[in-house]
Design a protein around this nucleic acid. Structure first.
Lengths: 341, 341
DNA sequence: GCGCGTTACTGAATCGTGTTAGCAAATCTG
DNA sequence: CAGATTTGCTAACACGATTCAGTAACGCGC
């Protein structure tokens, strides 16, 4: 054992006080009025001896733990990072830790993950998904406060935090409308998922508000891949009255759209304007021209999840069980004013 | 408290045995020969009562914890995900947990992160970076076994796991050489970092082995961005004897290269062949044509990190302190046979 | 000099588990 | 059938904190 652990008892002996006093001082319990002098002396000895609190002992004794559990599909996507990042940051500043467990699609696996987290005495649970959808929450998750991030349960039993897809779709279409476009195409992500429904609904509302009509033929069903963006764009631009702007259901679709447009000898952001969705960090800002898109607020959702959890753990009543987080536009260079050049 | 925790004592009482016996059975200590009948009865009662072991108590009592700490720059890049994923998987199957702490560049922050992890009684530590480089390991990390992933310390004091940049560069160049190319360009990542030095060294070796000469003018210094790929490619293709193939220092450079090539009216994977590096999941397979590239083995490095850590914790001597993990080629469609069409 | 409040602590119980030492009964050995 | 061994279990301490219930010493007013 290289590990010589210094305990509170050691500090107490060295400082000539009782363990209790050390505990009070180190935890800053002012109500136990320990004079500044003693306080200082104890802090000094603790530092000198290299005392490091034992978190396990603390959780055991105090019956409340310093950590939350986060269950997510690490497997699939880089998005998970951002949720983790936000949650981590938020938890960290309260001195809390995040235990991250994988839930690789398999529902049995997910249950096991939750079980394991509960064994670790987590004070609360966040269940996060990489794409916005409905999930079935494992039964055992009810043992502690639990929030859903980027997903929701059918019964609405759990508080959930999701992106405001509708407002996002509205913002995307509005960018194009404001730029003077009146003939606008749309390539959707996979049919029936909240992202598709929400974004499309928002778009339609925006166009209506701006007095722009859109034929059904201008909405083509994609599946979220670059390929579907490529072919969808070809389809739109082959129409007799091709759109001058396309709202792509996500950034990957936009990537395919760029290729199709360039192949036709047209210029993105000049001849055809493009708006994406997601704001994928390693994609959107590096495309040529840089992609104007709507950001998915993963980091904010992660942060919101932790702070909601904090509220629940402290027992304060939560007013709002369904929180939507706005999707901010990222204006870059793929949208041109229509009729300017 | 909704949380009615069932303890071992409860199980013991319900099953009519002592707590010790329950402990033995539940931990599968065969040497305490408990007959099958009793064993079964205890397991049943435990299940019935919904007994869940208290990890904090267990760590405290047994003086060894079920988790490792992983310190990484979550902030910057999606790569972190893959390391986490690999490490997570690997740890998980031994019933171990990963505590993930952020080290956002700030060295003070990193030290604090390590300190916090040590408080949680982690049995070992992994320090991972998002790009291959030398780091200064915080002093307190020495309290427990510690391995470096995707980075290394100057003194070589810590075991470290890094990608085999040289072999990767070799493989990249060889793909082009095998395809019949003899005039090959290269756009580097940022000067002086291990990735640049290693990949370039590997490339040169491969070309030498294949009897191909390469003028200095065919190597242009980039900085890892798509922009530098775009301009680098323009520079290469403007030369009197332009290369027919380009090895791009990373996938983002390749992304810029694609744009430059297409703008000149040439076709990637037909007129000009491209090989990238990194195999960015949301980039390479979605480019048009799909990018042939060399993968950075983040997931494998994460797994290797954990298993090395396991060895160290168990005290088995480790033979190899500097492990390099191969970078497998991902053959897709951006390389054409030269002189075929 | 008595009662009372404050100051500055301390003793001891507790949290849920791991683990060692040991004991009574049953079984084997010779 | 005495003695040795094995079987099947238990008592009790340890782990490193938190926390409740005190308590000795001191100052202060009357």
């Amino acid at each position: 054992m290289t590990q010589q652990s210094v305990t509170m008892a050691d500090v107490a002996k060295a400082a000539g006080v009782s363990r209790t006093t050390v505990s009070f001082v180190l935890n800053g319990r002012m109500e136990a009025n320990i004079p500044e002098a003693t306080r200082e002396r104890i802090n000094q000895t603790a530092r000198m001896l290299g005392y490091r609190p034992n978190a396990a002992a603390r959780t055991l004794a105090s019956k409340r733990s310093a950590w939350f559990g986060l269950v997510t599909e690490i497997a699939t996507s880089p998005f998970a990072t951002d949720v983790i990042k936000g949650a981590q940051r938020s938890a960290w500043k309260d001195g809390n830790f995040l235990l991250i467990a994988p839930s690789d699609d398999d529902p049995g696996m997910e249950m096991l993950a939750v079980e394991k987290l509960l064994e670790q005495q987590v004070g609360g649970l966040i269940i996060a998904t990489t794409w916005h959808r409905e999930i079935i929450v494992p039964e055992n998750a009810k043992s502690v406060p639990c929030v859903l991030v980027n997903c929701f349960d059918a019964a609405g039993e759990f508080p959930s935090i999701v992106p405001d897809e509708v407002a996002g779709g509205y913002a995307a279409a509005e960018i194009l409308a404001r730029a003077g476009h009146t003939n606008i195409g749309h390539i959707t992500v996979a049919q029936g998922i909240p992202a598709q429904i929400g974004r499309q609904t928002g778009m339609k509302q925006a166009l209506r508000d701006h007095g722009i009509s859109q034929e059904e033929s201008k909405i083509v069903a994609g599946d979220g891949t670059a390929d579907s963006g490529y072919h969808g764009t070809q389809e739109l631009l082959a129409q007799p009255d091709p759109p001058t702007a396309i709202f792509c259901g996500n950034d990957r679709i936009a990537m395919g759209a760029y290729d199709a447009i360039k192949e036709l000898g047209l210029r993105v952001g000049e001849d055809i304007s493009i708006v994406g969705f997601d704001d994928q960090e390693i994609l959107a800002p590096h495309m040529r021209p840089k992609l104007t898109t709507i950001a998915l607020p993963f980091e904010e959702m992660g942060m919101a999840g932790v702070s909601l959890l904090n509220q629940m753990v402290e027992g304060s009543p939560i007013e709002n069980r369904q929180i939507t987080i706005g999707c901010p536009p990222r204006i870059r260079s793929s949208v041109a004013m229509h009729g300017q050049r």
